[in-house]
Nucleic acid binder design. Structure first.
Lengths: 208, 208
DNA sequence: AATTCTTTTGACACTCAGTACCACTTGAGG
DNA sequence: CCTCAAGTGGTACTGAGTGTCAAAAGAATT
């Protein structure tokens, strides 16, 4: 690998490192792209050459490709939901220390900085379409099959649940929490048949 | 209701009407706030007094409070998942013509303009926390209960699945599609036990 | 009807994200 | 070396969004 490539890699890592640090210390909105560029000792132009938007510096992530690798090595016949669990666990499990640390910082940010939580919720790793694509390949059905999409939606929902749990301060490890959520799903949708109780006389009706 | 109030209401409606029209005709990004303000014959400042951001002019929505009303009138003992279905259906069903038309335009926009699709996916109506709150009230468990959050996540996931289906052009009515997704969920998570097939030798490995 | 009070409004100036362009530097390879 | 392409920094621009302020207009009171 040439000097050029190494330099590029180093610059991107520096930009991301400083960006995450600044976001953590001063907040997302209060940190300008200029600040990040200055901290990494490059120009504003260079920042945008590496990351198309300010958001992307948070989103850049290394687990996706790993998960695809894990998926490719699962034995045929594994039940789909179980497969998803294994892929997720495997994907996060096989990160090297640095990548894992980055992932930790990112989740810490998601917990403490609301803007970043929103960004991650929306764009990080897996959206419905992405998972639907994997499922589609895994069981040989079209990506726009309603059941495929619904399954994908449920998985994404489990992820949101895990993030919400962390956001509420009721859990700390994103990976473990997501795994727990997926495990629960194996037993079906929780509370689906739970009877609702009589509505209270409306404690404080307000528009959120 | 005073004259003042009526004028205010009319201005907001005008702004939203023109904004949606311009978005539909020229795209979201290509339409500036100045364009919208000019079309509605008010100043830029005025636009921002009515809608804090450009996004909000799309998001402004009237179904939420209606759904809360429907929720309050369900008989005690209704199974939770069924209750959610009824609330959703009831909420959309009881819109007056104008509100329903607006909802249609909004969904049409979501289908044709990707930026708006993203915005709606992220911020419209119900997030996990919101649904978890409703569930929490409905069955009397804390909002950060993992099962409550997971259930809420699953419902949100069903919604994403419906949106994805529309986005793919495989469905046209958002309301019907969401209702269909929720109905499917009553029978459990589809495909959960579907065995995956042997992985293909990887057709085109690429980073999305 | 005139006056006072409150809210709306338009105008201006500002910051910051994001884009486009161009001139300059530097690594790669003959 | 010397050339070429890639990467970099600077400059100038558009548009979103914020803050301020003085003028205008509705509402309320006398």
């Amino acid at each position: 690998m040439g000097l050029r490539e190494r330099k590029k890699e180093r610059t991107r890592a520096e930009l991301q490192r400083h960006a995450l640090r600044l976001f953590r210390d001063h907040g997302y909105a209060a940190t300008t792209v200029d600040d990040i560029a200055a901290a990494a000792e490059v120009s504003r132009s260079t920042f945008f050459r590496y990351f198309p938007t300010k958001e992307d510096v948070v989103l850049f992530d290394d687990v996706d490709p790993v998960m695809e690798g894990v998926a490719a090595e699962l034995p045929a016949g594994t039940p789909l939901l179980e497969a998803v669990r294994l892929i997720v666990r495997g994907g996060f499990g096989s990160l090297d220390d640095e990548a894992r640390a980055l992932e930790e910082v990112r989740m810490e940010l998601a917990r403490s900085v609301p803007e970043i939580a929103a960004i991650l919720r929306e764009r990080n790793s897996f959206g419905v379409e992405q998972i639907a694509g994997m499922v589609s390949r895994g069981i040989g059905r079209p990506t726009d099959d309603p059941e495929v999409l619904l399954f994908a939606g449920v998985v994404v929902g489990a992820r949101y649940a895990a993030l919400a749990r962390i956001h509420a301060g009721a859990a700390s490890s994103y990976i473990d929490e997501l795994d727990a959520m997926l495990s629960r799903l194996v037993a079906g949708i929780p509370l689906a048949d739970e009877p609702i109780r009589a509505p209270r006389p409306d404690p404080a009706r307000s528009r959120a």
